[in-house]
Amino acid sequence: MILSPAERSYLYDSLIQKPPIRPDSRSGHQFRPLEAKTAFLPSSNGSARIRLMDGSECIVSVKAKVVLKSQESSLIECDIDVSGNRDDSNFVSILKFNLTNLLCQNFPMDVLQLTSKYSYKLFIDCLVISHTSYPLTLLSLATYLALKTTRLPLLVSDVDDSEVEEQPTFSDDWDKSKYLKEMVSSNSKFQPPIFITLGVVGDNLLFDPSTEEEQVLENGLILSWYNNKVITPISNINLASNSNNSNFKGMDPILISKSLALLKKYCGEIVDALDGIIEHDDATEGGIF
């Protein structure tokens, strides 16, 4: 997307004000409104669909498979498909790396344990149907919802099979299946990690930059949030989709600590909102569109 020089300078001048004047006059820490629906794919263990007002849309499906632990390097595998982008393109592989890396390093793997030999492996398939701004936050929020609503069948065979040669068997009754959140040890809460994209203009940090805003950002930050704190990786990124972003420049390190404080302040609310939609979804049946 190319903006005209006059548009760019107008946008930039607006965003650099204190507080920033965003085109849709969101405050710096405000997300665009989202619509979400969970657990709507009948043939997957967990699913979520999330949509922005501008038509950006992402569907995530979680499927589980029983595997021999000794043969698997990782118990989570992500796959991302972005419509309009090749699977081996930089854009998609960076998204895929980010998400896989985040989940593999910050996931309570013990919930996937079945027996001493066997375990569940989660396949997380993400489909970005359309997007205008950088889709990583959308993807990770949808992944959060899908993982939170993932149900796995109940194991009925013996947990300890180190001695015997036995394959795990499961209860036929889907009503007895358990949510991932019920399988974590009682003292901790099951909250998968999420990514938050921040835009940097001057001293201002903008949550969830829209595609027009992305074009004039001086820098972009990707932070991850897990267990009520900001975790690594924290990385920066040029969010302008055409790479000749003339505004792109280095960033004051103070902004990083500022961004950590911002996330501490507001991420709780984001996670609460996501949890809220899951509870609400369980209670009532509705259309998925």
Binding site: S27, H29, Q30, F31, P33, L34, E35, A36, K37, R51, F207, Y266, E269, I270, A273, L274, G276, I277, H280, D281, G286, G287, I288, F289
Partner: peptide, 15 residues
């Protein structure tokens, strides 16, 4: 002001 608002998709033709 809220940071994020997430709603369930509404079915326009529900009624």
């Amino acid at each position: 002001m809220s940071v994020i608002s997430i709603t369930r998709p509404t079915n326009v033709y529900d009624d």
